[in-house]
Design a binder for these strands. Structure first.
Length: 501
DNA sequence: GCCGTTTTCGGCCCGACTGTTTTCAGTCG
């Protein structure tokens, strides 16, 4: 098991302890351990072999012994036993809004309800009303929650809701009713997939809050506060929850209480006029919203090692582009015009290769015709450059799907997987590494193959692939399609790079 | 289960909201 798998296993243990009604702080200890392991530098095996587990903060005797067992046997009896004692359906039930571990436990133990289907039926038969702490409204909410879950996952692509949120913000600003207005929550953090739109605004006096459902089906929370509270509220509602928790933890150790109304030292408000000041009071550099996930950013801020994020204006050009030659919607000329209008100084054209039948992959003749067209355009625009490329399929054996004499004609080659997604982990890793090793390959396209809200990433040793890319000096694509998005975050850490996916 | 300029026991982040209660437990972000 690698760090990610162990981290996930401990997370599940915590969940199961909650379902069993164990001491909640015991469950939290497992959550903390899960987080610690995920962020651990180096190989977990080395810690076990060198007896250094006890030195890790958050890992004590009991969890240390479990890690020892995992590393030595590849499994954990404590986990397996726990898992066997809890019906699978209970995990599903936890996803229903308003249902937490305590209520699920009661429903399971008192009514012997083990799945969402059974729960739905129990609601219809009014059986939840007999339970202590349950009433008509609770039962109705659970029933509604199940119905909503059945027809709708309640998740949206960032690209779908970003402009809606911007539009609402613009309307609020133009209304003249609010002095300041900002999108917060997961959209401000630029999460790939979001559940709702959070927004804050300030007015002269008084506070209020409202929730509405937009036509697109997404919920929007608007919180209105007085101006003085703005930075604290902005920070609080931007989250993430995990980031806020870690920040409060740190503050508490400094004798400071943090909530959405301010920072307090012995009940006295510490005045801050911006998020920068809030972080500064806590001894931290400013942390950009995009990395507020408690993935090590607080430690980085303390050591003045916050990475410089790429901004829109940093982007001078882009390489992965399809035209109507394959499955794109626009001509080469139209793509060039659009890129010029965006202020880009170059683009790389990379239509699909011949194996991608579904996407009308290019034959040799079509390639020749496109290369000629690109040359004509490069003659026409002296201040703009079009690079000749191709998105070549990585075949199941790791080879690219054109011969050398064709691949040689391009300025760059993107190698991507578009078929046979279900290879075993080792085979898939081998396949990608072989493609990276190919002398014609310039970059690896969408390395995990995931489609947000639609298709899971394929089985893959991502770390090994990143190492191979570094070894062969190849580029890994940061994909900007709203359905794929970055896939890999490179976090500057010491000399090396760390993949978080 | 973990931790300790609160140090070997007693605490573990914070507040709002909801629904069930009649003072609070559970859930959520």
């Amino acid at each position: 098991m690698d760090k990610k798998e162990i981290s996930h296993l401990f997370e599940e243990i915590a969940l199961m302890l909650d379902l069993k009604g164990e001491n909640p702080f015991k469950a939290r200890a497992y959550i903390n351990a899960s987080r610690t392991i995920e962020l651990l530098e180096g190989d977990i095996k080395d810690y076990v072999v060198e007896g250094k587990l006890v030195e890790i903060k958050g890992i004590g005797k009991a969890i240390g012994e479990k890690l020892y067992e995992i590393v030595n046997t590849g499994s954990l009896k404590y986990y397996t036993d726990l898992r066997e004692s809890i019906p699978e359906g209970l995990f599903e039930m936890l996803k229903i809004p308003g249902l937490g571990p305590k209520k699920v436990k009661a429903i399971y133990e008192k009514l012997d309800v083990k799945s969402i289907g059974e729960l739905e039926y129990a609601c219809i038969e009014n059986r939840l009303l007999d339970l202590e702490g349950f009433g008509k409204k609770t039962q109705d909410n659970i029933f509604k929650g199940i119905e909503q879950m059945k027809k709708f996952k309640g998740q949206f692509l960032l690209g779908e809701v970003f402009y809606i949120a911007e539009e609402v913000k613009r309307l609020i600003q133009e209304s003249g009713l609010a002095d300041r207005c900002e999108i917060t929550g997961s959209i401000r953090r630029r999460k790939e997939v979001v559940k709702d739109i959070d927004m804050i605004a300030t007015i002269a006096k008084g506070t209020t809050k409202s929730t509405i459902r937009l036509q697109s089906g997404i919920n929007m929370d608007l919180r209105v506060v007085v101006d003085k509270e703005y930075p604290y509220v902005l920070n609080h509602f931007t989250g993430s929850k995990e980031h806020n928790t870690a920040v409060r933890h740190r503050a508490k150790a400094m004798g400071i209480k943090v909530n959405e109304y301010g920072l307090f030292h012995e009940e006295k408000l510490i005045e801050c006029h911006s998020e920068e000041e809030i972080y500064h009071v806590l001894g931290l550099d400013y942390i950009p919203p995009e990395i507020r996930e408690n993935n090590g950013e607080i430690e980085a801020a303390e050591k003045h090692q916050i990475p410089i994020l790429i901004e829109l204006q940093d982007i001078k050009g882009t390489f992965h582009m399809h035209t109507e030659y394959s499955d794109g919607s626009n001509t080469l000329e139209e793509m060039v015009q659009a890129a010029r209008n965006m202020g880009l100084s170059y683009i790389g054209i990379s239509d699909h290769s011949r194996s991608a039948f579904y996407a009308r992959g290019l034959s040799k003749d079509e390639i020749m015709r496109q290369l000629e067209e690109i040359e004509e355009i490069n003659e026409k625009y002296k201040d703009f450059k079009v690079f000749k490329g191709i998105e070549s399929d990585i075949l199941p054996d790791g080879s690219l799907d054109y011969e050398d004499d064709i691949l040689e004609m391009f300025d760059f080659v993107i190698a991507s997987v578009h078929s046979n997604f279900k290879l075993e982990k080792d085979k898939m890793t081998e396949r990608l590494i072989k493609a990276l090793k190919n002398k014609h390959t310039t970059m690896l396209g969408h390395p995990t193959g995931r489609i947000l809200l639609a298709r899971k990433e394929y089985e893959l040793d991502l770390y090994a692939v990143i190492d191979a890319a570094a070894e062969f000096k190849k580029v890994i694509e940061l994909n900007a399609d709203p359905h794929r998005l970055v896939e890999i975050y490179a976090v500057r850490k010491g000399k090396g790079c760390k993949a978080v996916n």
